[in-house]
Design a protein around this nucleic acid. Structure first.
Length: 592
RNA sequence: GGCCCCGUAGCUCAAUUGAAUAGAGCAUCUGACUACGGAUCAGAAGGUUUCAGGUUUGAAUCCUGACGGGGUCACCA
């Protein structure tokens, strides 16, 4: 149990002993003590004043006195300031903690809790390459899965590939009309970029057609519908649904180009999936829900034959679930997919990593499944993340402001290479080792940048300024790890060395207190589905180590005792930095 | 327009979910390598938390209103 939790439970027990307060009624806040006050942890007393009808100072004195008397090996001092009881935790407690955990590579990781979670993330369209927004999604999804696993969940990672629909037909048609048989090989392009260029081409040509029609006096709305390219696209979608061989062949061919491109990117950024769903294989599954819903009177038919659900009692609108021609819409497909996933994995919880623009849609999805009494409905959780904006606002493909994922990664890696070369600390690296290191640092900077912000919030990326390598960044944490490893190459903590009671200096103690909090941080990150908690923590630990490092010598410590203590501290710090960064999908180097 | 979200230092982000003097990084300025890695450290400056009310011992946080920004209300996905 963490020291904070121990304090909470000791304090609760003490309050029962002293005042007969029921444990359940006690909702105590225990914080780290602010640096300007004496002590390590603080119990906030204000909430007790009413119940006990005593002044906070008096409660603090009685509680502090009781705790230090009852647990002299844990608490060695206390003081009361206003409504705060500041408790000093004994050095020996911290030293014991360090000694028992400094080599534990799995420190903080919990054993199985029997909860099965499926995390759907990434979920790209096959008509465009990945961009910066997809990167946020990928990094978040992977990291959340990892964090849940470290907290004892059994996690399945999935991806739903949006591989069919009108937008896919657009790039197919444009290729047919304008490519003259060009391929990714013949043009030396990455497959996803190649296909994406035809999607852009379609848009350009389509705009021209619409413009021409408007010039001929047709109103814009009609022109958009009547343009030959649009008509041809719709025909192609029909042909696809009918399974017309030449369309299917083209579709397979182009999608495979895209997958080849995606694979390269996924491999590079470390995204992986236990199961990939293809929309082409699942988009019809939702239809049987419609019958079921009608039977259960959850859905209703309108006169034109379309099927709807009325969610106005829940404060939402009426929502279409099946078109009058019997084809399904987006929400219907998602209903089917939810059931399919449940059949496949019998999850307790299903996390959808999807942008916040779909908040309404996901609310509807969950609500419909609840109304249909699906056993898995309550386990659905929309992990809604904010868009990555430019300083000028949203990225827009029309205006060509979309930040391409591959380009950005290349840029980050090349900046990393440049920095590494300038600093010149990596003599003896083979070319492969160097390349790996540049990837590690470049991607580390990028991932950390995207993960250090609360997922729910929109964030800003400025393409004019490259992502920093100093301060609150991935490379800073990686650097600290490399620095510690460098020290540990010069001296190793002896696992059997028994530390004697010694005083802890401020820099040492601060670091131990932080290290002790790792399990709490890990749990918080899981409860909130929030990797930024881990990122901020990793930075705080790295910063604390660097401060410690500047104040105290490890290798030339003033005594053997201190040297062992600091070696243990260094060892554990490196472990925790490495674990935290791993949870973010970021590797840490031995040297950089 | 209805519903939802957001507004914190010049910029990018925090604030243990209502607690002590609102914290970090970047940028700016000052200082620190013949001690273990300077991608570092120490320090300075930078705030009426958009505004106005309210609740509370206590509000960036909760409530009401205003202003500003975004999302969504498709037989698109």
């Amino acid at each position: 149990m963490s020291i904070a939790d121990q304090i909470k439970s000791f304090a609760a027990r003490a309050l029962k002993e002293l005042y007969g307060l029921d444990l359940k009624e006690i909702d105590l806040t225990v914080n780290s003590t602010k640096p300007e006050f004496e002590g390590d942890y603080t119990v906030v007393l204000f909430s007790l004043v009413k119940q006990l009808k005593k002044s906070p100072e008096q409660i603090g004195k009685e509680l502090g006195g009781y705790l230090t008397a009852q647990h002299p090996t844990i608490f060695n001092a206390y003081n009361v300031i206003k409504g705060f009881l500041n408790l000093g935790v004994a050095n020996q407690y911290w030293i014991n903690f360090l000694q028992t955990n400094f080599l534990a590579s799995k420190f903080g990781v919990r054993s199985s809790n029997g909860i099965k979670v499926i995390v759907e993330y990434s979920s790209p369209n096959t008509n465009k390459p990945l961009h910066l927004g997809h990167l946020r999604n990928n990094f978040l999804g992977w990291s959340v899965a990892e964090i849940l696993e470290a907290n004892g969940c059994e996690v399945v990672k999935t991806c739903v590939v949006n591989d069919r629909g009108i937008h896919i037909c657009k790039s197919m048609l444009a290729w047919q009309l304008f490519a003259n048989g060009a391929t990714p090989e013949s043009t030396n392009m990455k497959g996803d970029h190649f296909v994406g260029s035809y999607y852009v081409k379609f848009d350009e040509e389509y705009k021209k057609e619409v413009g021409d029609l408007v010039d001929n006096g047709i109103n814009k709305e009609q022109a958009e519908k009547e343009a030959p390219l649009m008509k041809a696209t719709q025909q192609m979608l029909l042909d696809w649904e009918l399974g017309k061989p030449e369309v299917i062949d083209l579709w397979k061919k182009m999608n495979n180009w895209v997958y080849e491109g995606f694979d390269v990117t996924y491999k590079r950024i470390g995204s992986d999936f236990d199961k990939i769903y293809y929309e082409s294989g699942t988009y019809l599954l939702g239809k049987k829900f419609v019958e079921e819903g009608l039977k259960k009177d959850v859905f209703f038919k309108k006169d034109d034959g379309s099927t709807w659900i009325d969610l106005s009692p829940d404060g939402l609108d009426q929502k279409l679930v099946l078109r009058k021609d019997g084809t399904s819409v987006y929400i219907t497909q998602d209903l089917g997919l939810a059931e399919e996933k449940f059949k496949d994995f019998h999850y307790d919880q299903s996390i959808y990593l999807i942008g916040d623009e779909q908040n309404y849609h996901m609310k509807v999805l969950k609500l419909i499944l609840q109304k249909l009494d699906k056993p898995y409905a309550n386990g659905i959780y929309h992990l809604s993340y904010g868009m990555v904006d430019l300083p000028t606002g949203r990225m827009k493909s029309r205006e060509g402001t979309v930040v391409d994922a591959d380009d950005l990664i290349d840029e980050m890696v090349s900046i990393a290479a440049q920095h590494t070369e300038e600093l010149g600390k990596v003599s003896g690296f083979t070319p492969e080792e160097l390349r790996d290191l540049h990837e590690m640092i470049g991607l580390g900077a990028l991932k950390f940048f995207l993960l250090r912000v609360d997922p729910k919030k929109r964030m800003v990326f400025n393409p004019e300024e490259s992502i920093d390598f100093h301060g609150f960044t991935g490379p800073f944490v990686q650097y600290t790890h490399a620095r510690i490893k460098s020290i540990l190459r010069k001296g190793k903590a002896e696992p059997t060395y028994k530390l004697q009671p010694i005083d802890l200096l401020p820099g040492e103690k601060e670091l131990i207190i932080l290290l002790e909090q790792f399990p709490v941080i890990l749990e918080q990150a899981a409860v909130e589905y929030n990797p930024s908690v881990v990122a901020i923590y990793a930075f705080t630990v790295a910063k604390a180590y660097n401060t410690f490092y500047a104040e105290h010598s490890v290798i030339n410590a003033e005594s053997t005792e201190k040297k062992q203590l600091r070696l243990q501290l260094s060892e554990m710090t490196a472990n925790i930095i490495s674990s935290s960064m791993h949870l973010l999908g970021i590797k840490v180097p031995e040297r950089m």
